[in-house]
Computed example of a mutant assay.
Amino acid sequence: MYLTIPHNISKKYLYQDIFRKHMRRKIVGQGHNSKAVTLPISWIRENKLSAGDELEVESQGKSLILSAAKVTGPNKVVLDIKSKDMMFKRYLNSLYQFGYDEIEVRCEDELPLNLIESEAKEMIGCEIVSHTGKSCIIKSMATELSSEFDVMLKRMFLIIRMMFDEIVDEMQRKDCDKDKLQEIAGMEQINNRLVYFCQRVLNKKGYKEPSKTTFMAIILNELEQITDSLRDLSMLLSESRDMVSKDTVRACAKLSELFRDLYGQFYSFDTKRVGKMKRKRISLYSDCYKLLGKSKGNATDMLALHHILEGLGRIHHLNIGLVPMSLEGK
């Protein structure tokens, strides 16, 4: 998932917000029992602070986080759209993930309110609070808590596990339940809402362990891509008249098992499991490519194997990243 930014947002502002500024400061002695550090003047000016203002100080292990306690007003943005430009839905969602608390949507012709309402439902905690014929305001009605991130992330893992289990069950049946497969595909939208919310939390507050914020953003992206592959596989099976081979069903079951291993690694990392997962991955890659050679006459089989290989690649990317994260601080 890539962040799409409308043309009317300054690139300078974007770069300042996305890329964290790392600076070094020396500790200065101040009396017998106190120490002090100076604050960057650019940060002081950006937050409109002056001598005597209070700061929030939060200790997180080896990190000390300073936040401006002064309220500078809601975070607002205006989005200009055209009703026939369907990309506005992506712009809107990106602004939500970016952390804006109030989004005013303006349309030069008739406002596509139904489409905007549909998109707003994907934005956890936000509602349309007012609208006219050519504009509307979407406002955040809730405060995002950093503590909610881990809960939402675990729900994503569990939803993907459920999707895997139910897809394999349907593939093993002689007659797939088309409605059930479409229901499984619909779980992707549930996961998307969780991904968007968690991206918003990271952009607004960062992760509870600041050094892992970037990695958590990568995890969200990879989990969303895995969900997309499972959605596409479900829709393929629901719309196709052809059955997939038993070998392809077994390949999907092995992929499901690998994802369960990944889930175990994320919440309880084990170096011994790394080698086992690597051997399983290499074996599954080999099996899938051999099956592709045998499935030239069955388009459904070939496409199903393509989605399985997509998911396998995403799981591999996540597994690689878990190693340095798990060893941090040891």
Rank of each mutant, 00 (worst) to 15 (best):
T4G: 09
I5N: 03
H7S: 15
H7M: 10
H7E: 15
H7G: 14
I9P: 00
Y15T: 13
I18A: 06
R20G: 10
R24Y: 11
R24M: 12
R25L: 06
K26L: 08
Q30S: 14
Q30H: 11
G31A: 10
L39G: 02
W43Q: 07
L49F: 07
L55N: 04
V57D: 06
E58Q: 13
Q60A: 13
G61L: 07
L64K: 09
L64S: 08
I65E: 05
I65R: 06
S67K: 15
G73R: 10
G73P: 08
V78N: 10
V78T: 12
L79K: 03
F88C: 03
R90Q: 15
Y91M: 03
L92A: 04
N93V: 05
F98M: 07
G99Q: 04
D101M: 11
R106W: 04
L111C: 11
L113F: 09
I116Y: 01
I116Q: 01
E122S: 11
I124M: 11
G125F: 04
V129T: 14
T132N: 08
I137K: 11
I138D: 00
K139P: 04
S140F: 08
A142K: 13
A142E: 14
E144Y: 12
S146E: 12
E148D: 15
E148L: 13
F149D: 00
R155N: 13
R155Y: 11
M156Y: 03
M163N: 04
F164P: 00
I167G: 00
M171L: 15
Q172I: 06
D175N: 13
C176F: 05
D177Q: 05
K178W: 00
D179W: 03
L181T: 02
A185G: 05
V195Y: 00
C198N: 10
Q199D: 11
V201C: 06
L202T: 03
K204G: 02
K205Q: 15
G206K: 00
E209A: 06
P210F: 02
K212P: 01
T213P: 01
F215W: 11
M216N: 10
L220C: 09
N221T: 15
I226K: 03
L230D: 00
S234Y: 02
L236F: 04
L237A: 05
S245W: 02
S245F: 06
K246S: 10
D247W: 06
D247A: 12
R250T: 13
R250P: 01
F259S: 01
G264P: 04
R273C: 01
M277A: 01
K278C: 05
L284G: 02
Y289E: 14
L291Y: 03
G293A: 09
S295G: 06
G297E: 12
D301W: 00
L303R: 14
L305S: 01
L305M: 04
H306Y: 14
H307P: 05
L309H: 02
E310W: 02
I315T: 01
H317M: 14
V323N: 04
V323K: 07
M325H: 07
M325S: 10
